[in-house]
Design a protein around this nucleic acid. Structure first.
Lengths: 231, 231
DNA sequence: CGTCCGGTTGACAAACTTCAATGATCGTGG
DNA sequence: CCACGATCATTGAAGTTTGTCAACCGGACG
């Protein structure tokens, strides 16, 4: 998000107080209910966001990687709507929303970029929805690994070999399965030669088969084919 | 969304070409890939949005009710990112996004309202995420019915008795269960006196128990209690 | 009045969770 | 430097939930 990342090309008289902040593994960037003062752009490291259930268990909502923006869902209420903690040493660029809001009045480009980012957030959430509703744990895992792979690939890193930024428990929680199920799915994929996973190192041996595993359908013919009216 | 709903209080010289449109059950408001020209505010009826999977099956992403806004996720790419079809006779107020975008430059209040709406969309998606990751089909169903109930209640309708705007198959798809499972869950809840469901009419007999069913936890003690660093 | 579609029910199979135990790795303090 | 405990990950066996297949029912509609 170039427009938020730097301060050049600001109209004369405008200023945006921006600062960097570093978080150690486990530190909270913000918590549910906290007043919303600034959004953050992740610079390095990784972050997970999550909510607490009534029964006390937690639900991981998203993993954020460098370039991602935190806190946009807090705009409506002025309070943060989810917890965000660093999964590792993480640095973020914090920008007071007050200032952004002001600048949006005089900088149409910034306003459009903000809206674009929020729109992207909605698209991403739909993507997560599709991920969560895949039939089997293996499918979800395959799709998740491919997502990560593409993320790294798109940024010039190896799409074949990378470090998982989060522990198994968080991946399992995110995919809505138990860690045991995740572990079994991983070993299955290893035995079939799709991947190699040891600790946090992940090696994708056969991207094609991994994609096939993500797309796999139980039934050959139709499934829940859109009914009438679809033409 | 008052600011988008009417055209009064526009600055002199501004105009927003707004029109109403009526869709019959099954008609598409828009489809994936279509150029994004206008957002829609649902006036009456109900809409579902969905995406097609690689295997041809569909995944319902959301149900929209009067007051909800359609198409905000299309801003980033300029193309619609999901299909939207009317679940019943539906009227929507269509507003060209071009015009909104222009007006945002001169109407800070409109800009803020747009951002607020998108932010609300992000919050809602997180809510769906929490719904989808509930443990059992019964929990998801209970939570879903309560959501509907609150929606009606908040708008002056009966929170106890209302019409389900969508068929069973769509509810099941949305909750990521099979229609058979949904049917069984419904009969279970009827047998326990929580609800009464026949055809599309839903009667909530015991809201307290229904809420309890949604919150139910298998294990008494801890589950996935947030680990360290949570203080 | 028969057909079609949406919904329900039963029996069985598959996927996932639960409980329990073991192993590996890592940071910390003796 | 090593030992220790804690965390993280893996595995097995048994239990629960959900999916699958097939049949059936009843209202809507032509």
């Amino acid at each position: 998000m170039a427009l938020l990342a730097e301060t050049p090309s600001l109209p004369p008289g405008a200023q945006l107080q921006v600062w960097h902040q570093v978080y150690k593994r486990g530190e909270a960037l913000f918590r549910v209910g906290e007043a919303f003062v600034s959004i953050g752009i992740l610079r390095s490291g990784a972050v997970k966001t999550y909510l607490q259930r009534e029964d006390g268990s937690e639900q991981v909502l998203s993993f954020l990687m460098p370039g991602d923006i935190l806190g946009l869902d807090a705009i409506a209420s002025g309070r943060h709507m989810r917890n965000a903690v660093a999964l590792d040493t993480t640095s973020a660029c914090m920008v007071p929303f007050e200032g952004i809001d002001e600048l949006c009045n005089t900088m149409p480009a910034l306003r459009r970029e903000m809206m674009r980012q929020m729109s992207l957030g909605l698209v991403r959430d739909a993507r997560i929805h599709m991920l969560l509703t895949m039939r089997t744990a293996d499918q979800r895992l395959a799709a998740f690994l491919l997502d990560l792979s593409r993320w790294f690939g798109a940024r010039g890193f190896s799409a074949r070999e990378f470090q998982l930024p989060m522990p198994r428990a968080d991946i399992a929680n995110y995919l809505n399965i138990k860690p045991e199920t995740l572990s079994r799915a991983l070993t299955r994929m290893q035995n079939e030669g799709l991947i190699r996973a040891e600790r946090r190192r992940l090696l994708i041996l056969d991207p094609g088969k991994l994609q096939a595993a993500a797309d796999e359908t139980s039934d050959p013919a139709e499934w829940a084919m859109p009914r009438k009216h679809v033409q």
